[in-house]
Nucleic acid binder design. Structure first.
Lengths: 342, 342
DNA sequence: CTGAAAGCGCTTACAG
DNA sequence: CTGAAAGCGCTTACAG
């Protein structure tokens, strides 16, 4: 159906081998041979068939980015950066959504990670824990995104979740808040991110000599806006409601703020709110949302660099790379006056 | 490197042909032959190589979704739906971001649409106009997303942009607003979406016997939050500022609302704001954002259905499919009291 | 119902 | 510097 390399070779009066050499900028092809081949390519409108190339070379030029959901803004923003970074490295990105479904996540490391169509896998697991991740029989390199306990088996790139959560809660403590709640806890031993953030929350409170009150640790089935809204509603219904809340992501925080607005509580006066992720959305709310800002660009860059290294044969032991984060204190925890320069 | 079909055939004592038949659920394979083959597959842990399959069959099972930017929430939400829908149709999605760059968009219809790796292309163009789109020498089916003038050459699925824009502005007129501005106009003849929305804006004003004031038609270089914020600032600096504004997408509206908050104007009392896209983000703001809500699920479903049809050989003439939209009147145009039931 | 054989369009040791 | 040839792992008319 297509013009083939053979036809180009025929027209240029050379062998396919030489055409291949020219197309791939290989070896020392005699300048005039190269010119002849180039012209034949031009005239025939030849385009190499990447599938045939993949079959022979064993590399497709595709990487898979697997994440819970693209409609969660953190993942959308991260994907955008990963795709741009991959492009820079001459890779094309296949996106897979797991919806945090354990079955789909298992398929990823068992099936997709052995699919010759993908040269590497960037995976942000939600449901699988360290042991399950460890069991992977992957044939392609995998770099995990986010923090996980799967140390020593796969590479991973992420921020220090415990430390970041601690920083968020310390910020609320420094502001003089007395009853600090958290939204986003999940019991399932599987979601390690939630575990780490809860741990940071506890550590910060304990370091300040505070009691951790189970009532104030609100769980959320998933990390969408409506989960935050209903969790906040439950917290407000407590006999002694919180005056500050640390949400495990920005969407939860935004849902919480919506509930606060509906109930006529003002932020930050009545309740200070801090999120996690530094989504664009939070930056533009009124009041703007204080948050933990992972360096997403650095995550995308480091993850791609690691993956590219692996795909090129680097077989050093799996490593964890911690990427920096910042605390972005904005209007939802500070008084409006203090950030008037926004 | 992998277990091959040939090895399975050897072990099962059949020819590769038969293994292929079993793997693809083809033809009438004798039950016991099938069982033998199945067992050999099991024992050897055989997995068909999809690249080899693609090379022979000419189909990869991949479609490409090309859009301006994943960090624009409308596209993130739409992508999420497209990926889910594609999965249902047994296709995997490759995502490409164009950043609205004409060169990249041209590459898409000239290079990617001839790449055997993709079976079909779902494309949301931003920079190319009808004529440029028409010039495509695609070898795979293309379905355009959004409304475009490229009627008759490619399929497309979208909402009636002119009608939707008109509905948004009529809504503001009905609320008694007198100076209605618009944010998002673009001069470049290329971005047809902007043209259509400006046209709807004008039509609504003219139908109500109003003058269209050039000062009130604010342009935006792109459709991000900060573009909306600065456009709103310019409008407020007018000698006679608007009391309502129709933004060409939700992000612009959210930027505009941020500026209004900073300048101490209340929404909707001082200025009513309506957006376009119905992003989750707008729904959760306070005040919640009135908007035009395209049926995104229907867009994703219709576009995939069309594309799948084409990939399966449907060669009926290119068609335009209009998907319904709703006007979502929320707090940013109505008084808060009226939507207390939120 | 199943086999032998060709071929999808490339790449790559092996020669020269 | 370039050619002839094998082969990546499948599918698919062609036979039987």
């Amino acid at each position: 159906m297509h013009v083939t390399m053979r036809e180009v070779a025929l027209r240029a009066g050379v062998s396919p081998r030489t055409v291949s050499n020219v197309v791939n900028d290989f070896a020392l092809v005699a300048p005039e041979t190269r010119a002849r081949v180039r012209q034949a390519i031009e005239e025939l409108g030849y385009r190499p068939n990447p599938i045939a190339k993949s079959l022979r070379s064993g590399r497709s030029g595709f990487i898979m980015l697997a994440l819970p959901e693209l409609s969660i803004s953190y993942f959308a923003e991260l994907s955008s950066l990963v795709i741009a970074e991959a492009r820079r490295c001459s890779y094309t990105v296949i996106i897979e959504q797991t919806d945090g479904d354990p079955e789909r996540e298992r398929q990823l490391i068992e099936r997709d990670a052995r699919n010759p169509f993908v040269d590497g896998l960037l995976f942000s697991p939600l449901a699988l824990n360290a042991d399950q991740l460890r069991a992977s029989s992957a044939e392609v390199p995998i770099v995990l995104l986010g923090e996980h306990g799967a140390v020593g088996i796969h590479d991973h790139v992420g921020i220090d979740n415990v430390g970041a959560a601690r920083a968020a809660v310390e910020h609320l403590i420094e502001l003089g808040r007395l009853r600090i709640a958290a939204i986003g806890h999940q019991d399932a031993a599987s979601n390690e991110t939630s575990q780490f953030r809860s741990q940071g929350y506890r550590e910060a409170l304990e370091a300040a000599g505070r009691r951790v009150e189970p009532d104030l640790l609100a769980s959320a089935p998933s990390y969408h806006r409506d989960d935050g809204a209903s969790a906040m509603a439950r917290l407000l219904d407590l006999a002694d409601p919180p005056d500050a809340v640390f949400c495990y992501n920005d969407l939860l925080a935004i849902g919480a703020m919506r509930t606060l607005a509906e109930r006529g509580r003002s932020v930050p006066e009545d309740v200070a709110v801090i999120g996690f992720d530094d989504s664009e959305e939070g930056r533009y709310r009124s009041p703007s949302l204080s948050t933990i800002a992972p360096d997403k660009r650095a995550i995308a860059a480091a993850a791609m660099a690691r993956l590219v290294g692996r795909m090129n044969g680097d077989d050093s032991p799996p490593a964890s790379q911690a990427v920096p984060f910042r605390l972005e204190a904005r209007e939802s925890t500070l008084s409006v006056a203090r950030t008037a320069s926004f």
